[in-house]
Simulated assay, not measured.
Amino acid sequence: MSKIISEPNEARKRVAANLKRVRVAAGYSQERLADVAGFHRTYVSQIERCKLNVTIDAMWKLAELLQIDPAELLKPKSEE
């Protein structure tokens, strides 16, 4: 589903920060969101720590669960 990459780029940093912000606002723990999405329990944590290159399919599924447009996960901090 995803590939471990050593150096996070700007896109991964944006996804990490935005996912955490939206997840916390929605009241989900990392483990609970992963469980509801059908992912391994550590998957959301790895995304938020920029340890994984998340797939578009996974971003879409997380965005649906969090009731946001998937593009929200890629917005720069200044557009929040």
Rank of each mutant, 00 (worst) to 15 (best):
K75E: 01
D57V: 14
F39V: 11
Q46P: 07
D35N: 11
S78F: 13
Y43D: 04
D69N: 14
E80F: 01
S2Q: 10
P70K: 06
L65R: 01
V15L: 06
S29Y: 06
Y43V: 06
G38T: 13
R32E: 14
I4C: 04
N9L: 12
D35L: 14
I56P: 03
E31H: 03
K77N: 09
T55L: 09
I56Y: 12
Q67V: 08
A71D: 14
A34G: 10
E72Q: 14
S45Q: 11
K77Q: 13
N9W: 08
S6E: 15
A17Q: 02
I4L: 09
E64L: 07
V44Q: 01
A63G: 08
P8D: 10
L19P: 02
A26I: 01
E64R: 08
A34W: 01
H40P: 07
A26L: 00
D57R: 11
L73H: 03
E72A: 12
E48I: 06
E10P: 10
P70Y: 08
I47C: 02
L52M: 10
Q67A: 14
N53R: 15
A37P: 04
D35Y: 13
H40G: 14
D69W: 02
E80C: 04
T42S: 15
D35H: 10
R12D: 14
R49W: 03
L73I: 06
M59T: 11
S45F: 09
H40E: 13
V36Q: 09
K13M: 07
V15Q: 02
K61L: 12
T55P: 05
V15W: 01
E31P: 02
P8R: 12
K61D: 10
L62G: 05
A37K: 03
F39C: 09
L73E: 05
I56W: 07
R41T: 15
R21K: 12
Y28S: 00
S6P: 12
I5L: 11
V22D: 00
T55Q: 05
Y28A: 00
T42H: 09
N53H: 11
L74P: 05
D35I: 04
N18K: 04
E7S: 14
L62S: 10
L65M: 09
R32S: 12
A16V: 02
K20E: 05
N53C: 11
I47S: 04
S29I: 02
R12T: 14
R23K: 04
S45H: 14
E80R: 06
S78E: 15
K13Y: 04
V44Y: 00
E64N: 11
N53G: 15
E72L: 03
L66S: 02
L74W: 04
E72W: 00
S29K: 00
A63P: 07
M59K: 09
I47H: 05
D57P: 02
K3R: 12
Q30W: 03
